[in-house]
Design a protein around this nucleic acid. Structure first.
Lengths: 254, 254
DNA sequence: CCGCGTCGCGTACAACGTACCCAAGGCGTA
DNA sequence: TACGCCTTGGGTACGTTGTACGCGACGCGG
């Protein structure tokens, strides 16, 4: 657009190159000011996904967000799936711990798990995408490596550290997935706000009234002070670390 | 198709009802033989997804698989997302444990976790779909309820049982997700077979050669007898149960 | 001054989900 | 027996998607 249509009108004889009146010179083409780049594209895609969910990303909309033509994106990204790869890897970058590691492996594991969960919750689309591709991007590898050495440095052998981390991150993924499954439908119910609650509540009441789910019914009616997700997470993490310490015969100190 | 076009040709006077030559009688319309139904649709969708992945499901293809018109599906299912809901809930049905529960809660938890994992692995598309919606279908509720009572019956109070199960199933989801992330790209690399391995191996060698991932590099070169996923799972499960027993101050016996 | 490689993008197409509407059959009622 | 209604099936059509293709414009080395 812009420059090209403009210059075409004026172009009937090829336009006088060399500085002249501003009007005769085509406006600086967009790519001079804000060149498209893989990085800019990925960042814009992440922003879009954070704001409106991954489903809202179409190549057209993404391009529009960047003031670019749709097909221009394909100069920097092979296809949409590759874009997803890049988005995921970008998020892994935010997960790598910032240097300082305690000398107690349990503390390190705890810190890694907490950080991982928080980043995942910031990008609700991440979990779904991440579990469909192996973590082999540069940032994913950096994440794995630094986690590994954070735990290893605190007195565990490598294969042991690996198994342990695998167990913990599996747990983290699962917890986050569960949290998102509960919160997302509420979110995309949208502006109405409590619309979701009001839809589900009567349904659940009916289902419980059938008597087919006695334990569940009892659990729900019983005022179980609503179980904060943070607490659930910390509880599980504690269990896991305690269990690991016991199973591997190592104390939680170095 | 079939019957309708045929009968229209013959129908110029309304066709002689009553048994006559087969040819004059319109063939039994398809819905007499194999009526469409929500159940049939969901089952076909699951079969399709198991065979070719969820992405391969389009309403057109699914209808074709059922010898039906595309739009006929919408008589039994509101939209594609609702179809996904139904597919997920159908899988939950396969997860509810078959009655017999041990009197030791740890055994019950172990059994539930194992069964859940196996069913999830049978339907690789399930995890991705399940973590984007809350488990409130009838079968999901049945699964939750029976899990709950299996653990409760073995000597735990309800809220305790709930937190405990939440932790364990989070872990299971995470483990399965990790397993699938590793195995899926290999699968969809498809007929070529080792094509995936041959693509990634050189890349990984190069990345490790950069020296930016020392721990990871060491872990990989070190012949770490390839860590069977089953073992990883059992290890994590053991840790978790041991940790829970320790944390909640309850023994693994009733 | 002239190619040549790189970048941006307009056009075009196939495949998708699904709104809309009509046809055909089964069934209750007159 | 005849008629009207309701349910089920499905053809057509529209808007949106990912992306193959090819062309025009720019920057750079001869």
């Amino acid at each position: 657009m812009y420059a090209s249509t403009l210059s075409q009108e004026v172009l009937v004889p090829p336009p006088p190159r060399q500085a002249g009146l501003v009007w005769t010179r085509p406006a600086p083409t967009r790519r001079d000011r804000t060149a498209l780049s893989r990085d800019r594209i990925v960042r814009a895609a992440i922003a879009l996904a954070d704001a409106h969910g991954f489903a809202a990303i179409s190549m057209r909309r993404l391009a529009a967000e960047l003031d670019a033509g749709t097909m221009s994106l394909y100069r920097h990204v092979q296809d949409k799936d590759e874009l997803a790869d890049l988005m995921v890897d970008e998020v892994y970058a935010a997960m790598v711990p910032p240097e300082a590691a305690s000398s107690r492996w349990a503390e390190n594991v705890r810190a890694i798990a907490r950080r991982t969960r928080l980043v995942m919750l910031e990008h609700p689309w991440f979990t779904t995408l991440a579990i469909t591709r192996p973590p082999i991007g540069p940032n994913a590898l950096a994440y794995l490596d630094s986690s590994l050495s954070a735990v290893r440095g605190a007195g565990l052998e490598l294969p042991e550290a690996s198994r342990l981390l695998g167990t913990v991150t599996s747990f983290v993924i699962g917890v986050v997935a569960a949290e998102l499954a509960d919160s997302e439908p509420r979110d995309q119910a949208g502006a109405g706000g409590p619309a979701w609650q009001e839809t589900v509540a009567p349904y659940m009441r009916d289902m419980m009234a059938t008597g087919r789910f006695p334990s569940l019914a009892q659990l729900i009616t019983q005022d179980h002070d609503d179980e904060d997700p943070d607490d659930q997470f910390e509880f599980g993490l504690d269990c896991l670390i305690a269990g690991i310490a016991a199973r591997t015969g190592r104390d939680t100190r170095p």
